[in-house]
Design a protein around this nucleic acid. Sequence first.
DNA 1: CATGAATGAGGTTTCATTCAT
DNA 2: TATGAATGAAACCTCATTCAT
Lengths: 189, 189, 189, 189
Amino acid sequence: MIVKTRDLILEEALKLFSEKGIKETTIRDIAKAVGITEGAIYRHFESKDQIVYELFEKYSHQLYDKVERAIKRAKTEEEAFKKAVYAFLEFAFKKPDAFRYLNIFHYLRGKEVRKFKRIPFSLLKELVLKLHGEGVIKVEPEYALALVTGTLERVFLYKSMGIIKGRQETVKEKTANLLWKSLTECSQS
Amino acid sequence: MIVKTRDLILEEALKLFSEKGIKETTIRDIAKAVGITEGAIYRHFESKDQIVYELFEKYSHQLYDKVERAIKRAKTEEEAFKKAVYAFLEFAFKKPDAFRYLNIFHYLRGKEVRKFKRIPFSLLKELVLKLHGEGVIKVEPEYALALVTGTLERVFLYKSMGIIKGRQETVKEKTANLLWKSLTECSQS
Amino acid sequence: MIVKTRDLILEEALKLFSEKGIKETTIRDIAKAVGITEGAIYRHFESKDQIVYELFEKYSHQLYDKVERAIKRAKTEEEAFKKAVYAFLEFAFKKPDAFRYLNIFHYLRGKEVRKFKRIPFSLLKELVLKLHGEGVIKVEPEYALALVTGTLERVFLYKSMGIIKGRQETVKEKTANLLWKSLTECSQS
Amino acid sequence: MIVKTRDLILEEALKLFSEKGIKETTIRDIAKAVGITEGAIYRHFESKDQIVYELFEKYSHQLYDKVERAIKRAKTEEEAFKKAVYAFLEFAFKKPDAFRYLNIFHYLRGKEVRKFKRIPFSLLKELVLKLHGEGVIKVEPEYALALVTGTLERVFLYKSMGIIKGRQETVKEKTANLLWKSLTECSQS
DNA sequence: CATGAATGAGGTTTCATTCAT
DNA sequence: TATGAATGAAACCTCATTCAT
């Protein structure tokens, strides 16, 4: 399988960005990782920022599509929610660099996120709002959202740090159950 | 009231770091914000890194002490947990820059966190472990921790972004209740 | 003949270091002398110190090899000694900047000299010790060494200041004779 | 005995200059060594350069006077020469920092030396010229001078490095004898 | 006399980007 | 497409010197 330089650049940039941070990674670092020289990068990308944006868009879309499909396929609301959680964690476990990168990007360049469409977060938001509208989720939707997104991020983090152990499948299930029950069984009076 | 330059530097650095990121903030930015020249910074700090570390240590300790006191004063376990949550959010609302900075530091320089003592996170960890050991929290402690820390961070984030509305007191209460119920009422089968 | 930038940098740095001193010479000075910008220097050298060390090593080795060859080729002890003196002065006259630089480096960063191998001084030391062991040199070897190295340095200095005049060949001969006679004919009672 | 701040500054500056070099020593280093602050230095000296010059002048004069007296007191020419050598080494052993500093200054700011009067070197020069004129020294005076000054510097250096051992008195005598014999007994044909 | 904060110029180094080859 | 030297702006930091106190 022939891998194109352009994709290699994206791949190595992702690794480095997620490890060291965006500003902390230089074009030279990326070039060295790919095995080319600095100038060559500019044959494929106009600027470092373009790499940064393209990576965000690429993986943002991937995750969005994955989650969207998961929700659409589900037959019940509970299934939709849990499948969405599964999709998030599955993505995170399969592409930890990408997931970490999405979080870093959000954290440091949050304001620029609006430029992009198909943000995974918005899918969760819609889902939670819908479930709340239907009375399935009793917790106020803003809090529900905070609970879900915050927990997802941390579960991934703790899993990759070794704090949370166990098989990925198990972690996904446990997290989905925990979140579902938290949102549906608990009244937030 | 005379404000010392040293403190002004820390103050402005905190603001800028939490807004733009650490690497993204230059010594010149800080100097300009304070109203002095770059060289003057170095009369008060040996390096940019020293500012970075000192800020983390300072606010890490503040939050730690606040949470510790909250836990110690409580009479029941439920009170201890909720007061701890209160303390976190109270700190976050009063010093949003500091809270945001602590999170940024954790995210980007997580490996260096070990150098520091009195990390607020460790207090939460102890508390959750204890409550789990006593059977009060039924959720596995690692997941409980992920749920608590993740939600806390997001609630703060959504509040500061205007997604979550309402008085701070209300937000604190609602979050504490939500978390307590999630951990105690829900069985994570 | 294409001259490479890297060599040009070394060349100009040597000139400047030997004229003004190491610390007194800035990267900008060197860049200007070469006709490039400061940043360009760092494509060829990691730091100013690397230039400093590389220059020392380069010329230290050159001189060492020259002296070593001179000694090895000689048939008698007198010839060995005189040829060594010749080699020193020949090098000093041909590459006065380099010779001056070696002295400056020794003077100011003497402690770092140990890191390097093939120090010309050590050859002289061995030679003098050997000649003393064989009874050819009557003067105590430490004093002999002081006399030889000190005189060599000064002869070069006075020649380049115009205090000592005459053809280089003559200076070399006169110095060699003077030193040989001083060490062999004079009893140091 | 009350030591004045001004003298303390000179004293500590001398130590530091001779240890680390002139440019390498900062006003702050000196101030710290004295136990005062940077600003205070400027109560006593107009600039760093003034300290540099004053130190050179001070010790240059001291050595000059010492050597001059030694020469004047002598009854024979041999005594004059040897006493001059004694004076040099005595000064060097008693005030190694000062002697080292004089050499550093010569090395790095040789061109500025002309501004100063009573340079010890000139006394040696006169003496050697006179002795040569009288036929006592057979070696050409320029070479003689190189031999004497070079050897003196190196003997001091090797003594302070521990290469040359023995009591100071012995070193002085041996050096004086060696130099005298080298210059008078050896014909430099 | 002394302090020590501040300045301002200049030092070393980094790095995204360009460009001749 | 790729190279890698070079640019130029800007980063961090140093330090002689000044100055209000």
